[in-house]
Design a protein around this nucleic acid. Structure first.
Lengths: 343, 343
DNA sequence: AGGAGCATCCAAAGCGCTTTGGGAGGAGGC
DNA sequence: GCCTCCTCCCAAAGCGCTTTGGATGCTCCT
């Protein structure tokens, strides 16, 4: 039988009120008293009963998740990794999840139901598209949220955590150009997703800054699986004037691309340079590729943890966070990039 | 402001006790009264406050999930699909999840903490191995659980939902034999997993029943990704006496296998027959393969939903379920299977 | 006729926290 | 020396449900 607040108060010769206030950081309690309370908590192993807190405060201490289920959609490896980050942080604070599988067309209704149910204090949003209507919707539901990624166009004032995709792919492309590459290909995520749009923009801009153009036939958009990486690369190589370098939006895509390259009898890093974005998936480390992969790195799990942290912080009124965070990806050079052939 | 039990009771001219009992199916309430109550609930849209129920009953109304995070491990597509099934059912009953990411070596501690926290009423267990120690552990923690899959060896009396992997692959193999195939290969899941062991057993047994042997060089175990399906098939085809038929433990593996076959200039269903196990992944339908795939089918999402259903039923003391369920997979013949070449 | 026994309902006591509305006592101002 | 104003603490009232321990009639038996 776990110790309860009442017992703790008796033990300390204090009222429940004071103990509760000491624990929740209210100012009207003597510093010395607070110390005594905290010490007693440590010794007794007291943990407040979440059910009681929920009832008393009206907070749900849980966060809502709408997980997309549909044919084309990413219930993929990236989602799992992100979820792990979210959960890692949530479990520390004893937060629950309400998982709502939802077909894309029902998503709005799902969010609405979720907000109305009172079962969650906050939600998070991902897979941002251009002019994503869900941001305005969540605002109108007036439920706290944090977006993973950013929309393009539409309202600007919403909380998000994103990486600077444009900059990351700009820098990656710049490196390739500096190495002498002139024909650069891009194997990207699905065309409607904001991150894919930005990455393409980064590539385009870098090429332009050096007086080059992005050849549209060297750009493929698809679900980010091994399979599509392979197919895309294969088609690039079939072209009369194949690229000497390729950027991949995921190491998963790169896996397929590398296979296609090898199969064509070419060597990664010599005949074809490759840079991939690395979400730091534990099962697919760029350094373990037969030719270690040059990458733009930013941990998906860390993003999940950060978003959970911000959501939870907001709910508990603790800590202050910047509203909009744009993380820089690190450009890590390994062996898959080299001078363009013939330079 | 949602309507509460008290208001509902006043509205009906009844006590809270009676209304509560009417809603929770207690016998000491007149049938007519119960009907009145239910009608009022429908009209007012009353929904009991979960926080209050949690506090009053001591139940958590939530189920615990330990999600494996580690290099080799499946935070893969199959997990997402299963999770969707779980969540689909849970959301119907207003159940929450407590997601615990955990490295395999910490799993025991995680379960222990989870059970002790009182945050969950039940947990579920997956990725069964032979002699899986976690079953005994969960029993000793005396927290309700349902296993997805079955162990091999060890205690027999625990609740599970599994498919009859042995039978499924026995029947698939039998079909191949009847079609004249004699050299049959198997691209399986990881060797230590119970389902993989059983599937191999099914193949072995079928071959044996027809006086044939399973050639160990025609059996590969790996994580079930496209990539490994491709590699395995490629290696089979390089053999001096390649198989004329291959069984895959997942459509994901089959995807790679098919690619390897095509690339070798062979035709699926004519030169090489292929049967895959189909978990009914929305993004990978066997009927959409260039040559539609013959499969043993059993929906992973349905299994998730069923397990959630059983866990929730157990918590609410509602409904009775068989303790151990062994589902039969359906063998669905499509175009990827045909007579062995030269027959 | 007098209970026993059942069916049906109710008042009130929790569940374990947070929060409201003071109250005691000492410091400081005049 | 009196009043005001903090500082620090407390008692008690919820939060919205479930459940205990009766109460009240009625039927049925003997």
């Amino acid at each position: 039988m776990p110790v309860k607040l009442k017992q703790l108060a008796e033990l300390l010769g204090l009222s429940q009120t004071t103990v509760s206030r000491a624990l929740n950081g209210y100012p009207e309690v003597n510093a010395k008293t607070r110390q005594r309370v905290l010490k007693a908590v440590r010794e007794t192993g007291y943990r407040p009963n979440r059910a009681a807190q929920r009832l008393a405060t009206g907070k749900a201490y849980s966060i809502g998740l709408v997980m997309p289920i549909a044919s084309g959609i990413v219930s993929d490896i990236h989602f799992g990794e992100f979820l792990a980050g979210l959960a890692e942080e949530a479990v520390k604070h004893d937060f629950h999840f309400v998982l709502n599988p939802s077909a894309p067309e029902d998503e709005e209704a799902t969010f609405r139901r979720l907000a109305a149910s009172g079962n969650v204090d906050a939600v998070f949003l991902a897979h941002m598209r251009a002019n994503d209507p869900r941001i305005a919707m969540l605002k109108s539901l007036s439920i706290p949220f944090v977006v993973h990624g950013r929309s393009i166009g539409g309202p600007k004032d919403y909380p998000f955590v994103d990486i600077d995709n444009t900059a990351a792919f700009y820098e990656a492309t710049r490196l390739l150009i500096q190495l002498g590459h002139r024909r650069v290909a891009l194997i990207n995520g699905q065309e409607h997703l904001a991150f894919a749009i930005r990455r393409k923009k980064g590539v385009t801009r870098a090429l332009k800054d050096w007086g080059l153009d992005l050849d549209e036939t060297l750009v493929h958009h698809s679900v980010m699986t091994d399979e599509y990486g392979y197919r895309s690369m294969q088609r690039f190589l079939e072209q009369p004037d194949p690229p000497t370098a390729v950027l991949c939006s995921s190491t998963v895509l790169a896996l397929g691309a590398v296979r296609a390259i090898n199969q064509a009898g070419l060597t990664v890093g010599a005949d074809i340079s490759i840079i991939a974005h690395d979400d730091v998936l534990p099962m697919l480390k760029p350094e373990n590729f037969s030719v270690p992969l040059t990458t733009t790195r930013s941990s998906l799990r860390a993003a999940g943890a950060r978003i959970a942290s911000r959501l939870i912080g907001g709910i508990l009124d603790r800590g202050t966070y910047p509203d909009q965070e744009l993380w820089r990806a690190e450009l890590i050079v390994r062996a898959s990039t080299g001078p363009a052939p013939g330079k």
